[in-house]
Simulated scan of single mutants.
Amino acid sequence: MTALSINLNKIALIRNSRVTAIPNIVDHAKMCVSAGADGITVHPRPDQRHIRAQDCFDLQSALDVELNIEGNPFTEPRASDQSHVGDYPGFVALVQAVGPAQVTLVPDNDQQLTSDHGFDLAKDGKRLEPVVRVLKDIGCRVSLFMDPEPSAMATAANLGADRIELYTESYARAHESGNFEKTLCAFQETAEAAFAARLGVNAGHDLNLINLPDFTIPHLDEVSIGHAFTVDALRWGIANTIPRYQQALGKNL
């Protein structure tokens, strides 16, 4: 069955709107797990606009489910400009220190409001390969954030990746229009190509309770959902929202 990993970035964004520890990230992660989440995802950016480096350590030590840390593997250390926030150690150094079960490499930067494209492996493959090796050597499962391009899956596998995470915004937009079959087909073909290359398949970005039941792609190991989950949790509460997402994945609770 497809695992549900909850992204806590938006919970952290609320906390960071003030100099406070409320809402507490670990407490909310535990509430998600108690309600049935299979894992927790965080995406600490160098500007620490939402999830901070320290949150990653706190979550890893407190949780008994998989922690997935997302980020750009090429980001360097950065001093914090806030006295109450620790420095950002650089993405690879952070992952090495925390040791999460999974790390998802994403080609984002500070100017992006959110992740908005997958890796171009023709351009970034040679830089990614040694990073993938370093992260696998410390025991992390390594996933690459990718657009739905079947031809790129063999290359991702050759770089040493264990999984790919399909960037699903194009599917979400097509679903909103009511004409998503052609777009979905591209994701299905990419998932088949990934499976053929012995890659696991994750997916995430703008998946929600409306479009998730129609996201019928084969070999789907995990979905990561944060923004829509947070909005729904404000309406129904965490304890009622997690089961709705698990049911949208086809699980009988």
Rank of each mutant, 00 (worst) to 15 (best):
C185G: 07
D206P: 06
G86E: 13
L13A: 15
S177A: 07
S224G: 10
N158C: 04
V142S: 08
S115G: 12
L113A: 15
R45K: 06
T75F: 00
D232L: 00
R49G: 06
H227P: 10
S5W: 07
R244V: 05
N68K: 00
F180D: 09
G237F: 13
D147P: 00
P130C: 00
I238K: 03
D116F: 12
I11A: 04
L59D: 01
H205A: 07
V42Y: 10
Q54F: 05
L105H: 10
T2A: 13
A193E: 07
A35M: 05
H227E: 06
A248G: 14
D38L: 02
T230A: 12
L144V: 01
L253G: 11
H43P: 01
N208I: 03
K30N: 09
E176I: 02
A203W: 03
D206Q: 09
A37M: 08
A53G: 02
K182N: 08
K136G: 09
V201T: 11
F91G: 09
V231D: 03
T155N: 13
A203C: 08
S224K: 09
L67K: 03
L105D: 08
E189I: 00
A122L: 13
I242F: 11
A197M: 04
A152I: 06
D58E: 10
D27V: 07
K10Y: 05
G71A: 06
P46S: 15
H28I: 00
F229K: 04
L113T: 15
C140K: 05
L144I: 01
T241Q: 12
E149Y: 12
I6K: 14
A35D: 11
D116A: 14
A62Y: 00
Q112D: 14
Q54N: 07
V142N: 08
P100K: 01
D81N: 11
Q48L: 00
S177P: 03
R49E: 06
Y171G: 02
E181S: 07
L234C: 13
C32N: 03
G178Q: 05
V201L: 09
D47V: 03
G90E: 04
K136Q: 12
N9K: 04
G178E: 02
S115D: 09
G200A: 11
R52P: 02
L128P: 10
V223C: 05
I6F: 12
A233M: 09
A203L: 08
A3I: 06
H43E: 01
A196W: 00
I238P: 06
